[in-house]
Design a protein around this nucleic acid. Sequence first.
DNA 1: AACAAGTTCAACCGCGAATGG
DNA 2: GCCATTCGCGGTTGAACTTGT
Length: 242
Amino acid sequence: MVRAPCCEKMGLKRGPWTAEEDMTLVAHIEQHGHSNWRALPKQAGLLRCGKSCRLRWINYLRPDIMRGNFTGEEEDAIIQLHAMLGNRWSTIAARLPGRTDNEIKNVWHTHLKKRLQSSSKPSGQAAPKRKAKKPAVATSALEGPTSQPASSPGQSLPMSPEQSLSTSSATDSSSSESEEFQIDDSFWSETLAMSVDSSGSGLETSDTFGADSASPSSSNDEMDFWVTLFMQASDMHSLSQI
DNA sequence: AACAAGTTCAACCGCGAATGG
DNA sequence: GCCATTCGCGGTTGAACTTGT
């Protein structure tokens, strides 16, 4: 098949996004949605390809994005989900509200993999100490994605349940490795329980976690089985820790 | 204080899947 | 059913940043 050029590379901007571009994109999506990524940049007056816009929105500007360090719970969940699902980052991300596949992939490659390697060694224990998040390149222009999403241009967007939950519960201080952004343990039990409880309808990924990242459940039946299994195991595990 | 080495993460690339005409 | 277009995913890159010397 002859591939259409991903994006006409002529005259299109690349590299880090500016605050202006972010605002333009957010404002446009707020008004018109993103039914057609390819046409979006033109309509919005952005010198970016649709792919780039989509990526920026999905990974950064979406109102329900939860930024900040991963909690130990999240890291454990990623490790276990990865053990079950392999490198299916989008599927893993669908189980972690507010996290993107890209972010999870990064975390996996940067320190979870190392953590597993070191923990598989006899004396190996801790993951490499996480340093504070740096302000990102493009983000310095944007009051920092490192800061609350609500302070981004998307602040006027409706806050999702996940976001409000995560922001309001970012006060737990039990984990030493994530100081600035933490999730209460109850968040996890609620989240996991929610997925398991809702018998039948279960795992409402597309509704709960956003249609953008979740794949249709019809193709995920088998996977859902394993994920459900994991959820249950996770519940049991958390109970045993009490 | 300056430099080198190591780490992190936003963004890009290419491919396959899905969708529409 | 075929073809073209668009979307979404996973792998990879490279600049910015941190840490160590």
